[in-house]
Design a protein around this nucleic acid. Structure first.
Lengths: 142, 142
DNA sequence: ATTATAATATAGCCATAGCTATACTTTTTA
DNA sequence: TAAAAAGTATAGCTATGGCTATATTATAAT
């Protein structure tokens, strides 16, 4: 049964790359989700609000928005509010769905809203489609 | 009930900082866990092995090991193998325990070993103590 | 013992995501 | 409408974690 151990080890260490890849998209997803939220609730998304929600400096938010624009997720004119491109909308939509599934799952597991929300935020970017499905199944049962 | 929505929003957005903090320690935890593993199985931990397991260049591993040494997690002499300080051992130990709990949890949820391992790797760094306890409870039931 | 190979270290590059400080617009208010 | 406040942009800094290329050292093989 030693080979099983080694196989597991190999699988284990192959996953580090996946995690690194997830990290690259994580920030992007957070921004796009927040922008979509702001557009829905306030009607417009501005740098200040994003910075405030992420609890970062406005300069940092500004810089990231510029990157998102270069990468085609977002459109904006100087000193104006931010819009999502189609590409950006798609990412935001998928992210939001995933977020809700993970959040509901954690609540169903017995966690309070605060903890569920905090952990969901970190976990959602690292959950595969397979795991997401299992969480959905669990949610239906509960 | 609108205030509940707003409260949830506030909680939600306060958690971004926690996630960022987790990211800072994430890489450290992965390294220390791997080093502990290598010490247990091979008897020594070398840069090559770490780089290979993480699937990164040796130069990258080397640089990070230097940071870990500066931060007091690790000790090593030039061209020699790596040892964990007490501080490093503690982090590795906690990380490993957490990893096993999350991994077991995902398997109990019905996931195959490969997926469980891959997702556990990403998730483990973002799971609070409360959630970890719920996962342990779930594991005991199954 | 010398040479070849493997491992480690270093230099220098890139991108990201933070920050503060400062400049510049836009909006609000008096 | 002019001044104050708010919002945005930019410059320049830090740290991290990737990379390649190139030393340098240690180990293995001949």
């Amino acid at each position: 049964m030693l080979w099983i151990y080694y196989k597991l080890q190999i699988i284990k260490y192959m996953s580090f790359k996946k995690v690194r890849d997830a990290h690259k998209t994580e920030n992007t997803e957070d921004y796009l989700e927040i922008i979509a939220d702001l557009l829905n609730t306030k009607g417009e998304a501005r740098i200040v609000d994003i910075a405030s929600k992420l609890d970062i400096a406005q300069a940092t938010a500004n810089k990231t928005i510029q990157r998102l624009q270069n990468q085609g997720f977002v459109k904006k004119e100087p000193y104006r509010s931010i819009f999502l491109t189609l590409k950006g909308q798609e990412v935001a939509s998928v992210s939001k769905k995933r977020h809700i599934i993970v959040l509901t799952f954690l609540k169903n597991l017995g966690l309070d809203a605060r903890t569920a929300e905090a952990d969901a935020e970190g976990i959602e970017h690292h959950v595969s489609d397979k795991t997401l499905k299992k969480m959905e199944q669990f949610n239906k049962k509960n």
